[in-house]
Amino acid sequence: MTSTVPALGTLPQAPGAARPGGIPATEGSTLQAVLLDMDGTLVDTEGFWWDVEREVFASLGHTLDDSWRHVVVGGPMTRSAGFLIEATGADITLAELTVLLNDGFEQRIDRDLPLMPGATRLLTELSAYGIPTALVSASHRRIIDRVLTSLGPHHFALTVAGDEVERTKPFPDPYLLAAAGLGAEAARCAVVEDTATGVAAAEAAGCHVVAVPSVAPIAPAARRTVVTSLEEIDLAFLRGLMTERR
């Protein structure tokens, strides 16, 4: 999904909109783009993936250990599915398991797709101020396109799916691709992520990271800010990341 990307450095104020934090829309910031993860960051679906994985393996006669959840969260499906096949010894190929997991996940989100608190407000604010925004996920294109109907495709200038890059998270490739697609420098992009895998990818790309942990704790670090909810993030906050000395 692509659309016209606003010119970088031009951050128009939406008609009648209040300026977040009282900061003028065109002053005091080098923020060029915002790149957001999907599962566990914008939509409350990390638990859905684990539930589907357990259901699929139960149908194959295997029980997943809860300790494995931290291993598979946030990464590409090939890694997660491959780990679970090896850990359980299930008689199924990676390709077959990938289809079953995507099918099961689509059925779950067709019934219910809860957005994370603050997601709609944040996306609406970024759109209102013309901030170039991308959705960067390790999920496959078929899943992203389903979720976009709830998030609103108009909020994103582009989207990057895990099955569209040679190396997905934790490699930096998806975030480098998204920044380039928006005409931005990675160092002037703010990334919002919920897992250590996603944080590693964004940091390897050279982006400023805001971590909103969903399953496992994430510690603060240089160029990494940790918050408890998207409710703590607005445009003024994201611009501040670019100007803070760390």
Rank of each mutant, 00 (worst) to 15 (best):
D103V: 00
L115R: 10
T88E: 10
G75K: 07
A58M: 03
R79H: 01
E96S: 14
D112V: 02
T63I: 13
L122G: 11
S59N: 13
A81T: 01
F105V: 00
H70W: 03
R121N: 08
W68D: 14
T124V: 08
G61W: 05
T93D: 12
G130R: 13
I131L: 13
P132K: 11
L113S: 03
D110P: 00
Y129M: 13
I131V: 15
I109T: 05
A90P: 05
T78M: 03
V73Y: 02
A81V: 01
D112L: 10
G130F: 14
L100A: 15
A58W: 05
R111T: 04
W68Q: 11
V73F: 04
H70F: 05
T78H: 03
D112P: 00
E86H: 10
H62W: 09
E96K: 09
A134Y: 11
P114Q: 10
G75E: 02
L113G: 06
V56Q: 13
L122A: 14
V72A: 13
D103G: 00
R69T: 06
G104Q: 00
G89L: 06
R121V: 14
A119H: 01
D66G: 04
D103H: 04
D91A: 15
G82E: 02
E125G: 07
T124M: 08
S59I: 01
L122V: 13
L60D: 05
L97M: 07
I85Q: 13
P132A: 14
A87K: 14
S80V: 00
D65T: 11
L101F: 00
R108W: 01
E106W: 00
A58S: 14
S59F: 01
S67W: 04
L60Q: 02
N102E: 07
G118E: 05
A87G: 10
D103P: 01
R121S: 12
L64S: 12
A58V: 06
L60H: 05
I92M: 13
M116W: 04
D110I: 01
I109S: 02
G61Y: 08
N102Y: 00
R69Q: 15
L94W: 04
T133E: 06
R69F: 13
L101H: 02
V72R: 03
A134P: 08
E125Q: 15
D103M: 00
V71R: 14
F83E: 02
T133K: 10
E106G: 12
Y129S: 05
T93Y: 09
E86W: 06
R108M: 08
G61A: 06
N102H: 05
D112K: 08
P132C: 12
A87F: 07
G89C: 08
L126G: 04
T98D: 09
S67K: 12
Y129N: 10
G61F: 05
F57V: 07
A87R: 15
L100E: 11
V73L: 04
R111D: 08
G61L: 10
M116P: 02
L113A: 03
L126I: 14
R69D: 08
E106D: 06
G82F: 03
D65F: 06
E96W: 05
P117L: 12
D103N: 04
M116V: 15
S80C: 02
R69W: 11
D65Q: 13
W68I: 07
